[in-house]
Design a protein around this nucleic acid. Structure first.
Length: 573
RNA sequence: CGGAGCGUAGCUCAGCUUGGCUAGAGCACUUGGUUUGGGACCAAGACGUCGCAGGUUCAAAUCCUGUCGCUCCGACCA
């Protein structure tokens, strides 16, 4: 490609709309342009980088034995009603109407479609395992699109779906995808770590997310440096030392005492009460599918709503309003407690199991109870794990302190089970002639998000630093004089031919621009290798080879191609 | 959906508080010239429904109301 034939609208200044560095660089390097919020145009260079990421994904999926298909983005709502997700996913589902006012949905994923296909085409245990994937535009009515390609209304996803006869076989399919994902992100030059993740309301046994550590990520990961434990904080657990004995006489029973104006853990922790937060029981009230429930936590712990959703088996809940709480409990938030309270179900966090000498609200404004022993004084409906881990708590595997790091989710692998195959009747006959639902897994990679994550993780003050594997062009030839039949341009064209013949993606910056402009643009876009051809070095029979992230090399003209091939090979390993 | 901010040239922004002559700057763009190894300089030029609609006023980019869009925080997020 000749630069003068391309469209590469680099920007010297940062557009006001971009907040995070990768988004700024996507715009400044002329890779994308915004059409409107959450919708982007891929310009030629951006598309080339995207295609390279896609191709890596495709090669590794093929290598793992998955079969590429292409499914419609436009889907009938009936199959969504059949799976139940017409309701549960309604917040993200785009819906459109045709000329006859019939409703359609734009697919946020394709479990329903692929399961419908498989229900019709696979009927024998001899036809499994099978794994189908596609790379396709997905639509999600995101409440708040942001950060460019990171969270958009429309984005490109690789989605794969495995079908197996048994749970064990499904496990093997899952493992294959897990390994393929590690290869994919490694080839993209990304540090992406698999972490245990919540399975959400989809059910299923377990899942892993592939996370790119980045301060701008929308997720938090708890991990341990000493073991291989890593989990999304929505899922993470830790070892917690038991509370030291309270030192109270076991015979002490709950005693009500006045606490005027005290409505927070912190204020009860101060004089004159001086009740340490860990010796308090926090009482939260949630409205779950129209019914109130209590959630109990130690005073120094935070509720984890994702875990609560998993425990409740529904995502349809919210904190109760003060008025709802007053009506049900007879007190305002800040004075709530579950002592001798049996009107509502009580879900207590396991960190509270067996604790004694606790203080909690008395369900009467301005009063608390002390000397509370939870198992004696509170009727716990269920003991559950609903606490959010904090940095510094002990790793569940090895006991070393956990760290917490923000991260970008670029992929997930998910063991689905039989939820969709049952709902959409994807059954097969096993060896005994018995009709059985297929066991499914699903596996996603945000392709556009992955492209941006590469930039977020690999840049410097001058611009993007593309790995060879995903760069829009691998080599940028930069003749410093392009006038007429200048020897620099001539040599550039010769090198262009030679490198292209060897299969290298080359762009030739044949613009009549000052060297500084060319260097800056080349570094902003982040081509892995720049070859500078100027009259000074040419007089010595040399060209300058500048790896984007390395030092400048003076190389004899005759050795230039070999040197470039060597650098590319090193970059690919 | 709640809170906050912003909409003026392709981009970055000034002007708005306190209404008033022809709406400005830098970058980018066009033409000519000088330059030519790290985002050049000089000269001339082109580019604007001041987001949109309504209102107040002799007069609105500026004040008021509504509306649309964008950004951030929160809520939300398979």
């Amino acid at each position: 490609m000749r630069w003068t034939h391309a469209l590469i609208p680099t920007l010297r200044e940062t557009p006001a709309e971009a907040e995070i560095i990768s988004h700024q660089l996507l715009l400044r390097a002329g890779l994308i342009r915004k059409l409107t919020g959450g919708l982007y145009i891929f310009l030629p260079l951006g598309l080339r980088a995207l295609r390279k990421v896609e191709q890596i994904v495709r090669e590794e999926m093929d290598r793992a034995g998955a079969l590429e298909v292409l499914m419609p983005a436009l889907q009938p709502p009936e199959i969504w009603k059949q799976s139940g997700r017409y309701e549960t996913a309604q917040d993200v589902l785009f819906k459109v109407a045709d000329h006859a006012k019939k409703e359609w949905v734009l697919g946020p994923t394709h479990e329903e479609v692929i399961t419908t296909l498989v229900a019709g085409e696979i009927s024998s245990h001899r036809q499994v395992p099978r794994n189908f994937y596609q790379i396709q535009t997905k639509f999600r009515d995101e409440i708040r699109p942001r950060f460019g390609l990171m969270r958009a209304k429309e984005f490109i996803m690789k989605d794969a779906y495995s079908f197996d006869a048994t749970d064990e076989a499904a496990q093997a399919s899952y493992q294959k995808m897990y390994e393929a994902y590690q290869r994919i992100f490694a080839r993209c030059g990304l540090k992406a770590v698999p972490v245990e993740a919540d399975t959400g309301v989809m059910g299923g046994k377990f899942s892993h997310e592939f996370m790119v550590p980045a301060e701008t990520g929308e997720n938090e990961v708890a991990y341990c440096d000493h073991s291989d434990y890593a989990a999304n904080v929505e899922k993470a657990i830790s070892q917690l030392p038991a509370l030291p004995a309270s030192g109270e006489e076991a015979s002490l029973t709950p005693e009500k005492f006045a606490t005027p104006g005290v409505a927070t853990i912190e204020s009860l922790a101060k004089a004159p009460y001086s009740v340490a937060p860990e010796r308090q029981i926090k009482t939260l009230v949630y409205l779950v599918e129209g019914k109130l429930v209590l959630a109990l936590l130690r005073g120094d712990h935070q509720l984890n709503e994702t875990k609560l959703a998993a425990v409740l088996g529904t995502a349809t809940f919210r904190p109760a309003e003060p008025a709802e709480i007053l009506e049900a409990m007879g007190a305002h938030p800040g004075s709530l407690g579950a002592v001798q309270f049996d009107k509502l179900p009580v879900y207590a966090d396991v960190a509270l199991r067996g604790v004694t000498g606790m203080t909690t609200g008395a369900n009467q404004d301005g009063f608390h109870y002390r000397h509370v022993a939870i198992e004696r004084d509170i009727k716990v409906t269920r003991w559950v794990e609903i606490r959010t881990v904090k940095a510094g708590e002990a790793c569940p595997r090895c006991g070393h302190p956990l760290k917490i790091q923000r991260a970008i989710e670029v992929g997930h692998v998910f063991k689905l089970g039989i939820k969709y195959s049952q709902a959409l009747n994807a059954m097969f006959l096993d060896e005994n002639g018995k009709k059985t639902p297929l066991v499914m897994g699903c596996y996603g990679i945000g392709v556009t998000r992955t492209m941006q994550a590469i930039i977020e993780q690999s840049h410097d003050k001058d611009g993007i630093i593309w790995p060879v594997s995903t760069a829009p062009y691998t080599v940028c030839l930069t003749p410093l004089n392009v006038a007429g039949a200048s020897p620099t341009l001539k040599l550039a064209e010769q090198l262009y031919q030679e490198l292209t013949a060897k299969g290298v993606d080359v762009i030739l910056d044949d613009r009549d621009e000052r060297p500084g402009v060319k260097f800056k643009d080349s570094e902003l876009i982040g081509f892995p290798i720049r070859i500078g051809i100027g009259e000074k070095s040419l007089a010595k029979g040399e060209v300058e080879i500048k790896p984007r992230a390395g030092a400048l090399l003076a190389v004899k003209t005759a050795d230039a191609v070999a040197k470039v091939m060597e650098l590319i090979a090193a970059g690919k390993s």
